[in-house]
């Protein structure tokens, strides 16, 4: 076993060296250029897929493909873990063991924070964390954001064919990670895949789910009395001065609840979008090797943002179930 891993390490070292040299050669032939960066997700075609009566036209965007891919990865993960548990292994190994360890950490965290509500809150926490984690780490795969369709546009680059016979789709030919934007010219590139977190629709949707389910948990735990946290008229007649202050605090709670949506969605979106722009810029400035460092940074950022998104959801839900005796330490910003 030990010998095998040693052997593999010896070979991997040469692979890394080979990729660095190949990358340097490829960068000499086709220097990477800064791609055209746009905020909304790119559409595959200019004709809408179908039109809905109220919402409007529906386009299939590349972030939507990324979402389908992330869902498939999560489902496969779930099937693997299910297979391990139905086989009756007391100590799951491999991927199942890793997932078990991760979920155990998350569950213990939920239990210390939420107490008896841990069983209902945990699914949201774990689902959001796992989904955001898979989606963020998709940024690290070479080819995401860099392989795609070439399209005419105003701010394009001159085109150059690499492989003969392929006029519209140009594949980057070396395996190193640094050719983030491929060779697009005359045209601008529409990647097949783009990181899902760089689409505001995804982050706003997730934030809406999180905030609305927080209210649902509050009502489940405290009944209609939960809303007296926001519209606090109880003390208005008994204690005139402090009653008014309490009422004002209630209004502030309401505002902070709405601003949670903003802060949730922009935190995830801003971090990941800035990360991918950073990768583009570094890749175009220093084509060889430098991007690896930043890929490591993005690895950490993706993990931290996933955990923060899930943990904030969990803490807000725990607070909503705890009644309004002890709030005040956390507001949305």
């Amino acid at each position: 076993m030990e010998r095998t891993s040693k052997w593999r390490w010896g070979v991997n070292r040469w692979f890394v060296l080979l990729f660095i040299i190949l990358g340097a050669i490829a960068a000499g032939y086709y220097a990477p250029i800064l791609p055209h960066i746009q905020l909304p997700a790119e559409r595959y075609s200019h004709t809408p897929l179908f039109t809905l009566p109220v919402i409007g036209e529906f386009y299939w965007t590349n972030t939507l493909t990324a979402m389908v891919l992330a869902d498939i990865i999560l489902l496969l993960l779930a099937l693997v873990v299910r297979g391990a548990t139905t086989r009756g292994e007391m100590v799951p190994r491999g991927i199942a063991g890793a997932v078990e360890a991760l979920l155990e950490v998350l569950y213990n965290l939920t239990e210390t924070t939420a107490g008896k509500w841990a069983k209902s809150i945990f699914p949201f926490f774990a689902t959001i964390t796992l989904l955001v984690l898979v989606v963020n780490w998709m940024e690290l795969i070479p080819g995401v954001d860099s392989i795609g369709i070439l399209e005419h546009s105003d701010h394009g680059y001159p085109v150059e064919e690499i492989a003969p016979g392929i006029a519209t789709i140009v594949k980057p030919e070396d395996g190193a990670e640094h050719n983030e934007e491929g060779e697009h010219g005359g045209y601008s590139l529409i990647p097949y895949l783009r990181v899902l977190s760089t689409d505001l629709n995804f982050t706003v949707g997730l934030a809406l789910v999180s905030v609305i389910m927080t209210q649902v948990f509050g009502v489940r735990a405290l009944g209609v009395g939960y809303f007296s946290k926001f519209i606090n008229v109880g003390g208005l007649f008994k204690r005139p001065i402090f009653g008014v202050i309490d009422f004002g605090v209630g209004i502030l709670e309401l505002i902070s609840e709405v601003s949670k949506i903003l802060s949730f969605s922009f935190r995830l979106f801003g971090n990941i979008f800035a990360g991918s722009v950073l990768l583009f810029v570094i890749g175009s400035l220093v084509p060889v090797f430098a991007q690896s460092m930043f890929l490591m940074l993005e690895f950490a950022v993706g993990l931290i943002q996933a955990v923060v998104f899930g943990m904030l959801t969990m803490v807000f839900m725990a607070q909503a179930t705890a009644g309004h005796g002890d709030h005040g330490e956390e507001h949305a910003h």
Binding site: S263, F266, R267, G270, N271, V308, M311, L312, V315, E330, H331, A332, H333
Partner: peptide, 11 residues
């Protein structure tokens, strides 16, 4: 948690 809140402003 606190860092996340403070960081939100920067974001």
């Amino acid at each position: 948690l606190g860092i996340a809140f403070a960081e939100a402003v920067a974001i």
